[in-house]
């Protein structure tokens, strides 16, 4: 089995023929089983990059290979979309059908699968997404978190090895955010490769790789832990989770040792001992 899911090589893209590059020379390797956190502020180009993973956009310069298939070659289009599925920011705008299970079936129906296969995929996807009991419900009665889980169920039903999610929690309340993040965790545990676009550093703890975009350029890559120690976060349009920010200040002032992790229990322990 090929280990590479996506390989971006000097990828550049511009929405206009001439003018600013939305993406400028991106090099990135995504491997099977990765959870890539793709970070950046508004206008960093992260959504534009997301659309390259399943050939909704194709590079103007450089190349994008999905499981070895060149996305610029039109005949690879449908194979690529069978390899990488996408979930977008606004769940409301990606639900096609009024009934939950009908919507989940939309993708597999497009693939021309036999009826029984579609049914099996839909049932499985709804169970994973925790919407099994809502299968026959009208989608407009769902909460925000449930709607986004429905959108993710639609991607699960495509049975792709990789799912790209473009700020899936941006429009949700804390409850909905948690539901979606828990679902991503369980998908990753099942072996799905996750490419998660976000600007919330609270959501990257499970990422295996972190990539930061700024003005179309890939400016940093590393692990979540390494990211938390960077000084440039603010200029990247990112903000540390408050707990980590406080932890960093305390460590700087020498109130706690560098070895204490930014976790509540451990911090409380360390602080009680030091005072």
């Amino acid at each position: 089995m090929d280990i590479s899911i996506a390989s971006l090589q000097g990828l550049s893209y511009s929405y206009l023929e001439v003018g600013n590059l939305a993406l400028d020379g991106i090099d990135l390797e995504v491997q099977r089983g990765d959870w890539i956190a793709l970070l950046g502020g508004n206008g960093s180009g992260k959504s534009t990059l997301a659309k390259h993973f399943n050939a909704l956009l194709t590079p103007m310069q450089g190349a994008c290979f999905i499981c070895g298939m060149d996305s610029r070659d039109d005949k690879n289009l449908w194979e690529i979309r069978k390899t990488v599925s996408m979930v977008f920011q606004n769940p409301e705008n990606q639900i096609v059908s009024t009934v939950v299970e009908d919507d989940t079936a939309f993708g597999p129906e497009n693939l021309g699968l036999p009826t029984e296969e579609i049914r099996a995929r839909v049932d499985r996807a709804l169970k994973i997404a925790g919407l099994w009991d809502k299968a026959e419900v009208a989608s407009y009665t769902l909460s925000g978190g449930q709607k986004q889980r429905l959108a993710i169920a639609g991607a699960i039903a495509m049975d792709t090895p990789c799912i790209v999610l473009d700020e899936p929690t941006a429009m949700l309340d804390p409850q909905g955010r948690k539901e979606v993040m828990d679902l991503l965790k369980s998908l990753h545990d099942k072996g799905t490769t996750i490419i998660h676009i976000t600007h919330r550093l609270e959501e990257i703890e499970n990422a295996t790789k972190v990539v930061v975009l700024k003005k179309g350029k890939l400016v940093w890559r590393g692990t979540p832990k390494e990211l938390f120690l960077r000084q440039e976060l603010e200029s990247w349009g990112l903000e540390l989770p408050p707990m980590v920010a406080m932890w960093r200040e305390l460590a700087k002032m020498g109130t706690i040792g560098q070895d204490v992790p930014p976790e509540t229990e451990r911090l409380v322990q360390a602080l009680c001992q030091s005072l």
Partner: peptide, 29 residues
């Protein structure tokens, strides 16, 4: 999380002026 930490510290008898701002809280601690 910071408010949660503040509550837990106070349970251990550490009275710290409340703030939800990370750097103010760090300073207070």
């Amino acid at each position: 999380s910071i408010a949660d930490l503040w509550v837990k510290l106070s349970k251990y008898g550490m009275e710290i002026p409340f703030s939800c701002d990370p750097s103010t809280m760090a300073k207070n601690i």
